[in-house]
Amino acid sequence: MTTIARLRRPRPPRHWVVPALSFAGMIVVTLLILLPVIIIVFTAFKPVAEVNAYPPSLVPGTWTFDNFTRIFSELPFARLIGNSFVFAGGVTLCALVFDSLVAYVLARIDFRGSRVLLIVIVASLMIPFQATLIPIYQLVAQFGWVNTFAGLIIPRAADAFGIFFLRQFFVSLPRDLDNAARIDGASEFRIFRSIVLPNAVPALLTLGIFTFVNNWNDLLWPLVFTTQSEMGTITSGLTLLTGPSGIVPYGVMMAGSLVAVVPLAIMFLVVQRRFIESVASTGLK
Rank of each mutant, 00 (worst) to 15 (best):
I134P: 07
N67D: 08
L93I: 14
M231T: 04
V59G: 04
G232Q: 15
S73Y: 09
Q142L: 07
P249L: 04
F143P: 05
Q272Y: 10
A160C: 10
V248E: 05
V29I: 13
F225K: 07
S278Y: 03
F192G: 04
V59T: 06
G25E: 08
V270E: 02
P60W: 02
M253D: 07
T235N: 10
V102A: 14
G283D: 06
S281P: 08
R14V: 15
M26H: 04
F169H: 13
L197V: 10
A158K: 05
L173H: 01
W221M: 00
L241P: 03
Q168N: 11
H15K: 12
I39N: 08
G90T: 02
V122F: 11
V29L: 12
T69N: 13
I266G: 05
I183R: 06
F192Q: 02
L80E: 04
S257T: 15
L93P: 03
L101W: 06
D66Y: 06
N199G: 02
T43N: 10
R8L: 14
L219M: 11
F268C: 09
T233I: 03
F42Q: 06
F212D: 07
Q272G: 07
P198E: 04
L205D: 06
A95C: 12
V51L: 05
N217C: 08
P222V: 03
